[in-house]
Write a protein that binds this DNA or RNA. Structure first.
Lengths: 248, 248
DNA sequence: CCGCACTATTGGCAAGACCAATTAGACTCG
DNA sequence: CGAGTCTAATTGGTCTTGCCAATAGTGCGG
């Protein structure tokens, strides 16, 4: 048997258990140093060769990390000149116009308003194909365990199918915007508490009610079902909020 | 053999002026091939070494391109296994999600729903400063002639001030999203017909009614005023639509 | 038929080299 | 002395080679 496995690891006695690829670790580290103020907006980062030496990695790895940061819009690479931290103002594309990031309850209120109307419209306008799409999304949810990290994706897919079925793409966009806000840190923290099998099953039931109302073309029932869905979601958040208040 | 391969540039007399870095070109090319269906979701891309040969670039460059695509969420790199095209449903962030651009009537319906609620909330929650901001925006509208190209900006500012005053930043974002849809070509074409002094004065009156309702903390009246505002806007669109039907 | 070891494939990372673009400093000329 | 220019150091851009590590497919033996 070939027996030369851990050559490199010897250099990193304790921490080498990080399974992420090296370029990701480097990118995250640099990213963190930017946020910590080590490198300020407009600053030039050390040269690639220097960084490679400082971080004890090869230059290609540093380059990969910098390219990742460039794609993420955190740095700007100017050939021959250097790597520069981008201005934060230019960074936050979405957040322009100074609207603060909404908290979970604001999002839920907005979703209550928007998605209820979406559900009602879907009951009126959904094509057979769109109903099928919703059924399929729901089916995926049923087959999926709460522990499956994809469950949130299935949930999202159901609501997107509903939004599309509403026939109003402006509302569909708004609905999608609400879901994108779910990526926010605070939201994600609270959401951890949702990952129980019981709650997941309850969610499926709620979705089933919505789908049933749409299928039977009952706009009022669809709206009501979505209202219930949101109301229950709010309750879940409240209890999560109380259970895990110290969670940062 | 290993011979002097260099000078790729000389082989490309005319088009080598692509100033983008190589990794970007490669990434875009692969990305394009994914969209063209050459590689379907779930497919495994050719090995890095193979791609490098096919595209006549070095393996590090291919790696950089793939990492860029990975950061963009278009492919998934599984060490030792290969590079796989990510399921389109799972990457829906960058994708714009395939929702079609909403037409003016969809936008108006959505605004009717969202902004009416925003107005009601603003009537309940607006701070004095926020009411002042709205008054100021309205004042600018009054001073502004219909011919002034800025009038749309003033209009927008009023609605933004209202959205902020609602206290629900999620709804404010949704409201903002609706306004951003106004930049769409079809919308802009029809809007030309709004640029008459009479209509502009009417708009100011409608806004004044909304502001008055918010000032008097009358949520119901605010909602109703906004509903009227939207209803009239819809009417204007209908007549514009009929007057200028051939306008694409 | 199943499970285990082997091996080929593929990505991960390192080191070194050279090219090209940029930049800053020295140098020359007015 | 100042402004423009030219040069050389710096820095990113790309290529090559080489080896390690993880995965998955294959075939052997139970």
């Amino acid at each position: 048997m070939i027996f030369c496995m851990c050559r490199l690891k010897e250099n990193m006695p304790t921490e080498s258990i990080d399974s992420r690829r090296l370029y990701r670790q480097i990118a995250d580290q640099i990213s963190h140093e930017i946020e910590s103020g080590v490198y300020k907006p407009g600053d030039r980062l050390p040269a690639e060769r220097t960084l490679a030496e400082q971080l004890s990695v090869s230059r290609p790895t540093v380059r990969e990390a910098l390219i990742a940061l460039e794609v993420e819009g955190r740095v700007e690479i100017r050939g021959g000149a250097g790597v520069f931290v981008v201005e934060p103002a230019l960074n936050s594309i979405a957040n322009s116009s100074g609207i603060p990031i909404p908290g979970p309850f604001d999002v839920l209120s907005a979703r209550d308003l928007i998605e209820s109307e979406v559900a009602a419209l879907a009951a009126r306008n959904a094509s057979d194909a769109q109903v099928t799409a919703m059924s399929q999304a729901l089916g995926d949810m049923v087959c999926c365990l709460a522990s499956d990290p994809k469950h949130v994706e299935y949930d999202r897919r159901f609501h997107f199918a509903l939004a599309e079925a509403s026939g109003n793409s402006a509302l569909a966009m708004a609905s999608q915007l609400m879901w994108s806000l779910r990526e926010q840190p605070l939201y994600l923290q609270l959401e951890v508490h949702f990952h129980t099998e019981a709650i997941w099953q309850r969610l499926i039931i709620e979705h089933r009610e919505i789908l049933a109302a749409v299928k039977s073309r009952d706009a009022k029932a669809a709206r009501a079902a979505m209202h219930r869905h949101m109301k229950i979601a709010r309750k879940r958040f409240v209890s999560s909020w109380q259970e895990a208040p110290a969670a940062q």
